[in-house]
Design a protein around this nucleic acid. Structure first.
Lengths: 222, 222
DNA sequence: ATACTAAGTGTACAATGAACACTAAGTATG
DNA sequence: CATACTTAGTGTTCATTGTACACTTAGTAT
């Protein structure tokens, strides 16, 4: 270890992830139960220490994959939290990330009861470890804002979907109702969707056209 | 030092600042000349290591004050850069900040020639140390974007100003011309400005009303 | 055959944004 | 002191965008 930082901090660096999904018209976030002190038994955001020669993005990807079993999903850096007292043990700075996973992409939980991982509705959160409540609030705020000026919801949709499902996704996240005709007009006007030609199979009602995104690119409007 | 981080990184943490001002209708950023290796003699963004028990924001404030002599200006965290190779000596993670200073608030440089600090036009930058070019590109991008959906330019204006000066500030940052009548209508419609009652004193032309901001609050439009 | 469910479609009006040119109030000059 | 010069200040028209709103269609279930 070099001596370059005498008198300066050499804190631990972690990444913490707000991993979102939508299920049953609720915006949900992944929480893991802490096995160790401090905050033993508390729910917390999944996270972990940065490894040697690992970039921040790579660390976030690693944590994502470890906890969710998926990769290749939308992820972005959110903010860095560095209050000297945020970890009671010692100085730890955390770089927070947001990730989005379509509910359909999640592997089914193993049949034995998984009690150390849960998906909590963001409007019914338990007490969280560290400053994770603050981090999560900020993440939800960013997500809600970004939904209205980008096509970030792509990250939460399955490969193919009905327009009504897409509308429901928007409504769940922004927690408001949208007009069906206007919504469809606007979505199709973006030119980012294409019909698959296929129609929904089942249901005691008129079958819906299935759509998909032309590309995975995230675009900003306005 | 605890042993908790064995096998993990305990990198140095720095803050690096993109300190912007506008002068002579140019968007400028503060650069400092590096006295030491690596990148000795190169221009770089002002920055410094995080001190013990110092929050990230406090560190950024400290650096800002050391280099510019001002405090109480607009500042926000930008992004955290953590590529393992970004510092050739050893692992250093930097939390980048943006700050805005009205040109009029800057203390005059001491009369002896200051050669280790400069204000460079963002479209005529010298070679920069480390990954500071990348950081600065991102900062400029964020600033330009934010100008169009917030009143962030407040941070660059003097206490009192003419509407034509405000317009010029916008035009400089977004690098485009605006329509005078529409601009005035829109600005006054925000309700964030108030007349001071005073008029500009000098000039071989009709004197302009001076305005100021009702509050320092940053507001988002749309 | 009828009831049920979600899909799918167009128009009228309001609000917002964009283009555009002249008069007003001072100072400087001959 | 008349004229030239400079920047301040002001409204209207038109195009575009956004918003409110209700009925028909295509399938399944009974």
């Amino acid at each position: 270890m070099n001596t370059k930082y005498e008198g300066f901090e050499t804190p631990g660096i972690t990444v913490d992830l707000s991993i979102f999904t939508v299920n049953e018209t609720r915006l949900k976030v992944m929480l893991v139960r802490r096995a160790e002190v401090p905050f033993q038994g508390y729910w917390s955001l999944p996270g972990g220490f940065l490894k040697t020669s690992e970039s921040l993005d790579a660390a976030a990807q690693r944590v994502l994959c470890e906890k969710s079993g998926v990769s290749d999903v939308y992820m972005e850096q959110l903010y860095t939290f560095g209050d000297p007292k945020r970890d009671p043990r010692s100085r730890v700075i955390t770089v927070a990330y947001i990730a989005l996973i379509p509910w359909q992409s999640l592997p089914q939980p193993a049949s034995e009861k998984v009690t150390d991982l849960t998906w909590a509705s963001v409007d019914a959160l338990p007490k969280l470890a560290f400053d994770h409540r603050e981090i999560l609030s900020y993440a939800v705020k960013r997500l809600r804002a970004k939904v209205s000026y980008s096509n970030i919801v792509y990250g939460l949709m399955p490969k193919q979907f009905r327009l009504s499902e897409l509308q429901s996704m928007y409504e769940t996240i922004i927690d408001d109702k949208l007009d069906k005709r206007n919504f469809r007009k606007q979505m199709l006007a973006t030119g980012l969707l294409k019909e698959t030609g296929k129609k929904e199979l089942a249901g005691a009602h008129r079958p819906a056209m299935l759509y998909q995104f032309k590309s995975k690119e995230i675009v900003f409007f306005n």
